[in-house]
Design a protein around this nucleic acid. Structure first.
Lengths: 326, 326
DNA sequence: TAAAAATTGTCAAACGTTTGACAATTATAA
DNA sequence: TTATAATTGTCAAACGTTTGACAATTTTTA
């Protein structure tokens, strides 16, 4: 690959001049610039980022740590992150941590080794200490990591309230929550709390069913079938849309009609669900806004490592009413 | 951040020794190794990848260029790529090129500048020349890029045949293909050819409807509605599953029953579709195998830039029979 | 105990850039 | 024409590693 010296030789100028052209530094005549650009084009030259970064420039790389990308919610989030960061001249290293603490640790180490400019963390298998000693700008999505790391999330509590309201409004009496097995710091806790608090107002009964996040759709389907076949509930709140789809699937298999026999509210409201399952009533998280805020904060910290930021940024959610709560 | 020299000082050895420990090079006593590792742990030291790579080591980074990641097919593919590459010690820079040639070009430049070890290209807005002058190991998914770049794909032709067979078998007479507006090099062409060739055997009639890939689901839905409401077709082959979901949606809205009034076959058969839409008959691409082959080839080229590879690697597809062709 | 082997150290060049100091040349303005 | 400004060049250090040559020291083996 061509180096700066090759360009200098071909353009008939000094290496310093080439560097000046690249960095637009010092004073340069149009003629020289043209010559240099010409040479660059001719050799298809790309300044070696490694060398530049080593010399102190930013890497223009952001690490993105998420549970995965095959799920529509995180898929859309990654897409947004990529899109918005690209426009600001940054690229992303994608880290799917799954629910594997060791992998997340490895990735964290690697991101440090690669001197990324910052990290967006949306996966949280690790303890606080591990994130504290990273020493890079970090923004967290939806979970507490450490006192210095700002959290961006949507209003989970209100989302829970909205879900409850929708079910109550549609005349459900025997309510059921289906949620992932919840970690202590999990955001879904607030969804539950909001839901429960709202229900207190109408004095209705409800049950909670926990299904591990890592359960396959088949397993989840079985548990849901078990639940539905008792025919004891007439209103269900799933804390994610995919689980809600399984409920629809199982209900249909059991000959139960939605919304006549059972009402249903999901959570997340991704573009995917809105386009391909508009029938589902769901609480929409404003993914694009969440990402916008995360990136804004992150880049502030990239420019100034010690810049003061709030601890928490909470964005509003919105109920999308479909036919499952008609 | 701690440097190699800091470690040397803390461990009371020379910088060379530390480097030897890191690279497991030369001869070293257990005692020294322990001391050095101890110091590394104490300072949370990570060898600067930039410096290492500059000195000639690999970057352990692979660029992945795809149309996007919010679509379940590419979402699952990225997940596979990440998963398999991680196990081999590589990380990925994710490049969503969409259908934007300029963006793809930018990303290609950036990947060169960052000295990635190789590239997996699954997005194809650019001409051959652009890929030829990259000078890095590249593997292409499902599209011809240049004579030196191996193509890995699944058997699109046979997939088309399978789809046709399924529709014919289910008694459809008036067939319709719904596909993306096709580029000359697009793999969906082979799907169509296979479909058409198979139909010739039974002497059935069919029509082709093209809908641009970049059309929103709403627009697609409208076109499908228009088509269905004529009630002239009784068997539809969609060259991707998401479009098939829209057909189901529109059919239901129009009071048409699937499969009684119209039969339907999709394409891709992602985990997502298999779990959340098992009712859909579809042709499954073996994503995991495709990725395995791509990575295998790519890493061969990473180790030896000039290693000889076949031009084409075609993996088998499989019909998954659901209820839409019952 | 002497010879051989293993361990560690010193030193320096190299990777490809950026940047500052300074000098030399060229162009421009008074 | 001269003084001034703009342009370009030379040189070298720095970024954090790796690696080879070589020497010095310690340990092991015979």
């Amino acid at each position: 690959m061509a180096t700066l010296d090759d360009i200098a030789k071909l353009a008939g100028v000094s290496a310093t001049t080439v560097s000046r052209v690249i960095n637009n530094y010092g004073s340069l005549s149009e003629k020289t610039k043209t010559k240099v650009f010409e040479a660059m084009r001719e050799l298809n030259y790309q300044p070696n980022s490694l060398a530049r970064s080593l010399k102190g420039k930013k890497t223009q790389l952001i690490g993105v740590i998420l549970p995965g990308v095959s799920n529509p919610f995180f898929g859309q989030m990654v897409q947004e992150i990529e899109d918005q960061l690209f426009k600001k001249g940054f690229r992303i290293i994608l880290c799917n941590a799954g629910s594997d603490a060791e992998k997340e640790r490895d990735y964290l180490r690697m991101l440090m080794a690669n001197r990324v400019d910052g990290i967006i963390a949306g996966s949280h298998n690790l303890g606080i200490e591990e994130y504290q000693k990273v020493g890079l700008p970090i923004i967290s999505f939806d979970r507490y990591l450490s006192d210095e790391i700002p959290i961006v999330s949507s209003d989970n509590y209100h989302g829970g309230e909205l879900a409850a309201q929708a079910l109550v409004r549609s005349g459900s009496k025997k309510l059921q929550i289906i949620t992932g097995a919840n970690h202590p710091n999990s955001p879904t806790n607030a969804r539950l709390t909001g839901f429960k608090d709202e229900l207190k107002k109408s004095d209705l009964d409800f049950d909670v069913m926990e299904i591990s996040f890592s359960a396959t759709p088949n397993i989840k389907g079985l548990k849901i079938k078990e639940l539905l076949s008792k025919r004891e509930v007439d209103g269900i709140f799933c804390t994610d849309d995919l689980t809600a789809l399984l409920v629809i699937q199982q209900a249909k298999a059991l000959g139960m009609r939605v919304p006549e026999d059972v009402r249903l509210v999901g959570y997340d409201g991704t573009n995917f669900i809105q386009s391909y399952h508009p029938e589902l009533t769901t609480v929409m998280q404003p993914i694009s806004d969440i990402v916008m805020v995360m990136i804004d904060l992150l880049l502030k910290r990239v420019d100034d490592h010690d810049c003061e930021l709030e601890d928490n940024y909470v964005l509003p959610v919105k109920l999308i009413t479909g036919e499952t709560t008609a």
